[in-house]
Amino acid sequence: MERADIAIIGTGPAGVSAAITAKVRNKKTILFGSNNLSEKVSKAQEILNYPGLPSLSGTDFSMKLKGHMDDMGISAIEKKVSAVYPMGDYFGIQASDEMYEAKSVIIATGVIHGKPFSGEKEFLGKGVSYCATCDAALYKGKITAVIGYNEEAQQEAKFLTEFAKKVYYFPIGNKKLELDENIELITEFPKAISGNDKVECLITDKNKYEIDGVFILRDAVAPDQLVSGLDIADNHVEVNLMMETNIRGLFACGDIAGKPYQYVKAAGQGNVAALSAVSYLNEIK
């Protein structure tokens, strides 16, 4: 696959705005997210302070963003990004089971509500994983758990059954559940992950399950887990006014870059991030 100039992760107002500016600047761009855009936007009740679009509902705003993307021929790759690897002069991007390459990356994945489970960060890479498609083969004959936040997680759990001896599935706020028959559904709330030098147990509000590994499959991966070595402060990616992070060639914008959580601010920052990426591309030429 050809290396892109700019990879943008996230299809809220920040990511879409960055994609529009990148397109205007004629950069080879890949956008990861949903072609139905961020659900958070369409759920917004009413937006009162977006210049030029007075008294706008979330659904209308979402449709306007989508229309703008369509007009410019921008579409999203509907895959979840589980890791971004800074390789020096380029970035490797793991999206489901595929790898993409880009010279620069803009993170616009929004703010992730909710704390990590107790033990989650401690055991990352020691039995905690954010990508079943990537790591399933290392759990041959093992007992595993999936904490699934969406329908895609059910697909990943199914894939896991091809390798693991046992797959428990703990749904979080799922509406529709269609699980493979080899998967054991457990409707208890996971509380903590424990073990010594690797994962040994998943503790719920009611029970304790002996496991070798747990796959935590949220809608988006937290930014410090997404990019190793990325500076985070207060649950946000640290950026300067150019939307530059501490990693050269990597930018962040929108809610993930800090408060206030406002659409107009997100769109503005998306624009700045794309322009900064363009300057960066000119520098490294």
Binding site: M87, G88, G125, L138, K198, G213
Partner: peptide, 28 residues
């Protein structure tokens, strides 16, 4: 060596693991 995710890059000195990196990284 408790490999749960790959690539895992391990550095050995005098028969013991002295450093480890999980995931791809730059040459530098």
């Amino acid at each position: 060596y408790s490999i749960f995710s790959i690539p895992t890059l391990m550095i050995f000195k005098d028969g013991v693991v002295v450093d480890k990196h999980v995931g791809a990284c730059s040459k530098a």
